[in-house]
């Protein structure tokens, strides 16, 4: 028996919005420690790694480890049926063919359940090696989404350069060029509005706008986003998910041919 109950059910709705355009299907791996999902996009350019810790759920029971293959478009359709304030429970038997989503209104007067067929997916899991990043930028998630959207008008790539002075986002194309520079915040009252930079060495890499814009679908999950960069390593874009976990996106850079 597997059962995971989350009073803040809207988190699940936001997670699906954050992955459904990038991934068509994925395996949800459930165990004692919680729920994880790892999947590459179809073109194998990026990797999504989601982690939801069991202690972050209001109720969590997992008698046996199980892997549930799901079509994320179908799962998203079902989660759209949940209200923003609904309590969401995910339930499955051991060795399941189906998974059940139960939505309860806050006052307990409405309860709906949706059963979805599972898929047998034979997906590769990748080893994500530990690394010390050369640059780690923390900034407001909404600001990052805005910059990616704005610069996407100029070309299909964004260059992210990070130095002691700050972080610079650049794009160029047929209509011209664009640069957005952010300095490290000197004095912030609200932590979530701060821009902070931890730098070992300056870096500058080129990334595809298309994927960055997919990643920013996670913006509603978190006030801040963390961008981590190193030579010979993919960009990591991380959004914390309340006190339950995080979603990380890894993106391979564009390199000189």
């Amino acid at each position: 028996m597997f059962e995971a109950r989350l009073a803040k059910g809207a988190i699940f709705k936001k997670i699906l919005e954050a992955v459904k355009d990038l991934l068509t299907e994925a395996s949800w791996d459930c165990g004692d420690m919680g729920i994880t999902l790892q999947a590459m996009d179809n073109a194998h350019v990026s990797l999504v790694s989601l982690n939801l810790r069991s202690d972050g759920f209001d109720k969590y029971r997992c008698d046996r480890n199980l892997t549930m293959g799901m079509n994320l478009g179908s799962m998203s359709k079902i989660l759209k049926c949940a209200g923003n304030d609904d309590i969401v429970t995910i339930r499955a038997q051991d060795n399941p063919d189906t998974v059940t989503f139960v939505f309860e209104s806050e006052n307990g007067e409405k309860q709906s359940d949706y059963e979805m067929k599972l898929m047998s997916l034979d997906l590769e899991h990748l080893q994500i090696p530990e690394t010390e990043y050369a640059c780690v930028v923390k900034m407001p998630a909404g600001e990052f989404a805005r910059i990616c959207r704005d610069l996407s008008q100029f070309g299909d790539s964004i260059v992210i350069s990070c130095s002691k002075q700050g972080v610079k986002f650049s794009a160029s194309g047929d209509i011209g060029s664009a640069n957005v520079k952010l300095a490290q915040s000197s004095n912030v009252d609200k932590e979530e509005e701060a821009v902070t930079i931890e730098m070992q060495e300056p870096v500058s890499f080129t990334y595809a706008c298309r994927y960055l814009n997919f990643f920013t679908k996670a913006t509603p999950l978190s006030a801040q986003v963390k961008l981590s960069m190193s030579p010979e390593y993919p960009l990591m874009v991380e959004y914390a998910i309340d006190d339950i976990g995080q979603i990380r996106y890894f993106l391979a850079p564009k390199i000189e041919d």
């Binding site: 899991h125 080893q127 790539s157 080129t206 010979e232 993919p234 890894f250 391979a252 850079p253």
Partner: peptide, 14 residues
């Protein structure tokens, strides 16, 4: 000229 790298050139299969 730049080209898009694949994620598997950085992360290997488990």
């Amino acid at each position: 000229k730049v080209k898009q790298a694949g994620i598997m050139s950085f992360f290997k299969k488990k």
